[in-house]
Design a protein around this nucleic acid. Sequence first.
DNA 1: ATGAAAGCGCTAACAC
DNA 2: GTGTTAGCGCTTTCAT
Lengths: 332, 332
Amino acid sequence: MAATVSDVARAAGVSASTVSRALTGGTVSPATREMVMAVASQLGYQPNRAARGLITGRTGNLGLIVPDLRNPFFADVVKGVTTRARALDCGVFIADTDEDPRAELEAVAALSRNTDGLLLCSPRAGDDELLEVVEPASTVLIHRQVPGIPSVVADMVDGTRQAIAHLHALGHRRVAYVAGPEDSWASRQRQAALADAHADVEILRLGSVAPTFQGGVLAGDLVLASPATAVVAYNDMVALGLLHRLAARGISVPERLSVVGYDDVSLATMSHPPLTTVAVPKGRAGAAALDMVQRRIGGAGGRPRASQAAPEQEIVLGTSLVVRSSSGVAGA
Amino acid sequence: MAATVSDVARAAGVSASTVSRALTGGTVSPATREMVMAVASQLGYQPNRAARGLITGRTGNLGLIVPDLRNPFFADVVKGVTTRARALDCGVFIADTDEDPRAELEAVAALSRNTDGLLLCSPRAGDDELLEVVEPASTVLIHRQVPGIPSVVADMVDGTRQAIAHLHALGHRRVAYVAGPEDSWASRQRQAALADAHADVEILRLGSVAPTFQGGVLAGDLVLASPATAVVAYNDMVALGLLHRLAARGISVPERLSVVGYDDVSLATMSHPPLTTVAVPKGRAGAAALDMVQRRIGGAGGRPRASQAAPEQEIVLGTSLVVRSSSGVAGA
DNA sequence: ATGAAAGCGCTAACAC
DNA sequence: GTGTTAGCGCTTTCAT
């Protein structure tokens, strides 16, 4: 059986409350504190978070909900969250919803009772459904915006602008866009951004396709049937599938066609040729979201502190185009 | 504030214990149960697991520790665990140790107090360190064996045998093996398996290299400088890097050189050419480990039940060679 | 600066 | 079958 405060108290010859104070930073004499700490670590004492949470009203745990851990994009976000959580000594419950909006809503319900806050990464559920189950005071959305719920997003408008400016500079005037899932927030974002990225560049919308490698393979033929000299894919996985299909059809990239993705997943450096892509901060977004939710629930320890100067509702992280070898001069 | 048992009890006109019984499957009259359930769901009651855990001694939560979530291999394992956990209504704490053995040990210490059991996936710490901090009764290792700690592993000996038999059948007699990290359990496993996979096939050991895409790139030149007609890589990431380097040097695969990997990560289908690889069950291993730890801690609710017919200590999952296009007839 | 006592939400004995 | 009581491990008043 694990050691409890009482065990430590007995071994240290003090009361349980003193142990508690020594360990959580209450008013104790330096000497006592040091002694208690020594005894505690010597006994391998680890506080029972459940018991602590029962009284403080805070569990010290967070919930993190993602659509699919296998997607390298989400893996990066999760990694950012867990890394920051480790530094903050905060537990992270993980839930993978398998891209199922219903599972997402269930996960929110199950986790919200047993955590201090929730991080929802790219949730697939609709705005209204989300607003129904989510507690805005202790929830942060990652890479998704819903009016009324705080969020951390990447500046896709700027990233898109950079991508199109890059292609324009290389002489491209007709650029295909391979769209992802119709109704997704990210997809709408990208399309809106493309719409007014550059006056001189005509955007040819293709798709939509699944946001996967296979979706990209499928898109390859669509792109070749269009008059575009360059293509912007919904994300890197689609871009990679595209590259794969183009190679299979003997099309040289970037000579005949330039390809640009979104996300900058690690695979983007491993393709043939390495992929030019709009880098979106993934780990950084996860870490920022964790900090944000901590700030919002923090300090007050459950008690909602009286209106303190309108807490931030949104963080927009910068994006940057990473130019590799899949983009080049038009008609080269 | 969330509803508590007392709230439900008051609203239902019964005592708190009756509510508890109705919700957890105790002896209650069907009518009462139904009524309580209705009131509970109407109030949106969600049990406070912390409080429940305090008394039952079980938290209903598990800890899952992995070296690196970005590694698609581990992502698959995690996914297997979380999927099974969802079905069992069991929370999963995730910890990413960044391949750091010390962080691993710390994670074990921090999590073991606040979970019912621990799943350690491919831990990097040494046998002795692990044995020191781990509670064998409530821990299961995934893809790693340590005497005295239960584990779920894949049959690498058989997988390796299949791979070498495949290459032998294609006429290969000299096969290079690109070794991974010297001191890793997995690496030793594979080498032992290769040593007596086939009497007619000579194994040329190369490396070791980092178990990454970059490691594979590096290994590409090593392999070409050897007389081997085929190469087995430490894992798929190395094999993919190898393929990349070979392509860059204009070596055609499988005509000039056959390449085989281990793991069958999803990327293995996306390479040029698609990779022949020893498929190891990843999600299945995670799910099996979860079931195993539940079985071992289950029922008794904390109280270690008196010796019940020697609980299983090890599960070995089958592997199978997936033949794609990176392997072919020798000297073709 | 420290100890005693109360209580967080829940379930397990024990009565009835 | 149901209510009452006690207590899990911890923190936090309230005394001192």
